[in-house]
Computed example of a mutant assay.
Amino acid sequence: MIRKRLAPVDDPVIHRLVLEQLVPFSRTVDSGSSATFTEIRKRLNHNITYVAAKGTRRACGFITFLRKSRVLFVDMLAVDPREQGRGWGRKLMDIAENYGKAERCRSVELLVDDINENAYRFYVNRGYSVKQYIPDVGCYLMTKEIR
């Protein structure tokens, strides 16, 4: 099931997923200083966050996004490796894209680390294309129209 984030229950799991699934690909995070529990919680509190969970069990994935004018920006998406390939990422992206449509966003944008080949393929398969490469952070800015 996909549900809204429950901070006391979900934030420790989300923080672990960030450290295990996102930080290793990032060139901008030095020794996890910007990926502390407190910093991640601040980001989550600023954004809209949903989690994937099997029934009443702990979260196994999450997506966090925000609206910037007519663009929905997906800040982070991660799924536990034991649950990858089961459609959780697709379902989480569907939630974000549907939110963007409901809010009359014209497109969705996100950053993908250039060494994260699995994530890159995931987004290309969903219809995203590279808008530009940002060498300073080693990321592709990807976009998709959602009208």
Rank of each mutant, 00 (worst) to 15 (best):
G61V: 04
T64I: 03
F37L: 05
H46N: 13
T28L: 09
R58P: 00
R43W: 02
A53Y: 05
G55P: 01
G55D: 12
A52N: 08
S31N: 13
T36M: 06
R67N: 07
T56C: 05
A59H: 09
T56M: 11
V29A: 05
S26L: 09
N47Y: 13
G32W: 03
G61C: 12
S31G: 08
S26M: 14
E39R: 11
A52K: 07
A59M: 03
K68Y: 10
R57H: 12
H46L: 15
T38G: 07
A59K: 00
T36H: 02
R57M: 08
S33E: 13
R67Y: 01
S31C: 06
G61E: 07
T64A: 01
I48V: 15
G61H: 00
G32K: 01
R67G: 08
T56G: 13
G55N: 13
C60K: 00
E39H: 03
R67T: 15
N47D: 12
R41E: 09
C60V: 15
I40V: 15
A53S: 14
I63N: 01
T36F: 03
S33A: 10
R58F: 00
T28Y: 08
S26Q: 04
E39P: 00
R43H: 04
K42E: 06
A35G: 05
V51T: 02
N45I: 02
R27S: 07
R43E: 02
R27A: 11
H46Y: 11
A52D: 05
T38D: 05
A53Q: 06
K68L: 13
A53I: 04
F62V: 06
T38Q: 14
I63A: 07
A35N: 09
S69R: 12
L66R: 11
T28E: 11
S26R: 00
I40E: 01
T36G: 01
A59I: 07
V29H: 06
R67K: 15
K54A: 09
G32V: 04
T49P: 01
S69N: 14
N45P: 01
K54P: 05
A52W: 08
F37R: 06
S69H: 14
V51N: 07
T36N: 07
V51D: 10
A52Y: 08
T38I: 13
T38P: 02
G61A: 06
A52Q: 07
T38W: 12
S31A: 12
R67I: 14
R43C: 05
N47W: 11
H46R: 15
R43L: 10
T56D: 14
S26C: 11
A59R: 06
L66A: 03
K54I: 14
